[in-house]
């Protein structure tokens, strides 16, 4: 369970370029919720995830996971509770390390690291078993470096790494945006499968309204740093792309005409 209370985040505060990225956002995420987040460019979707993950410090407000107040925790400490998949497939894995080394790094997420061997032989069969789920044949390439994999393969591997140790919260930041449609669909299916199977509390930012409707049990629309629409359960399942588009028109008017969201 995550609770965000009156979150405020500025960029370039005090300068002429000041931007209010997150404007007094309060959000209660229940255990096991799968929330999709949509909004136009600059609405604050990625900023919100970066504030939760600790990449951006916030100006005021409170972030709690379970009964722990993590507002003051640095990013690396929050990794104990939070796992992430980034938009750029290259960001999620270490290119010069082998697949098994990447998995071993992820297997220690948020735990103390010592002088024991990084990749333990007893973990290899577990890694293979997990890789098999991806259906990409990576279980036979444990020693290949991640840099040899395609963007889609790396993103699938990152998905697996993020959930190897069950996180309290999984943050997906437009993790399909850089993939071709076919690969995006594969990684999307994988996402659905892993999240359902491991019952993960998930926040997923997406540009694709179709995906936002299709996945999860709750949908949030952001505009200028505020939550302007929040649908869950039955209300969410009845949503159509046109419903969402009309919401956008309502707040944005004709601006939307040249927004890339329309292409979705």
């Amino acid at each position: 369970m995550i609770t965000l209370s009156s979150l405020i985040k500025y960029f370039h505060q005090g300068s002429a370029n000041e931007i209010l990225a997150i404007d007094d956002v309060t959000l209660k995420v229940e255990e096991g919720d799968f929330i999709t987040i949509i909004g136009s460019n600059g609405a604050g979707k990625s900023s919100l995830l970066n504030c939760i993950a600790g990449t951006y410090p916030i100006e005021s407000g409170k972030i709690e996971i379970g009964d722990q107040d993590i507002t003051q925790w640095p990013e690396f400490k929050r990794a104990k509770l939070i796992a992430r998949v980034f938009q750029d497939p290259l960001l999620g894995t270490c290119a010069h390390a082998s697949i098994e080394q990447n998995l071993a790094l992820a297997y220690k997420r948020g735990k103390k690291r010592g002088m024991g061997f990084g990749v333990k032989s007893r973990d290899r069969s577990f890694f293979k078993q997990e890789l098999q789920q991806l259906g990409l044949g990576l279980e036979n390439r444990l020693l290949d470096t991640a840099g040899l994999l395609s963007g889609g393969q790396r993103q699938a591997l990152t998905m697996l790494m993020a959930t190897l140790v069950k996180p309290e919260v999984l943050l997906l930041d437009e993790h399909l945006a850089a993939l071709d449609p076919k690969t995006a669909q594969q990684v999307l299916d994988l996402t659905q499968e892993i999240v359902t199977q491991k019952k993960l509390t998930t926040l997923m930012v997406t540009h694709q309204m179709k995906h936002a409707i299709q996945l999860g049990n709750r949908l949030i629309m952001l505009h200028q740093g505020k939550i302007i629409f929040d649908a869950r359960g039955e209300e969410k399942s009845k949503l159509t792309v046109n419903d969402l588009l009309s919401k956008f028109y309502a707040v944005q008017g004709e601006e939307l005409a040249d927004d890339k969201m329309l292409l979705a």
């Binding site: 400490k77 990794a79 270490c94 997420r109 690291r113």
Partner: peptide
């Protein structure tokens, strides 16, 4: 384990921070 973290820190600091 620490050595691998060292490799990853030079290679991809964003990723290894996300791993705690």
């Amino acid at each position: 384990e620490i050595g691998l973290s060292l490799l990853a820190t030079g290679d991809n600091p964003q990723m290894i921070t996300a791993q705690g």
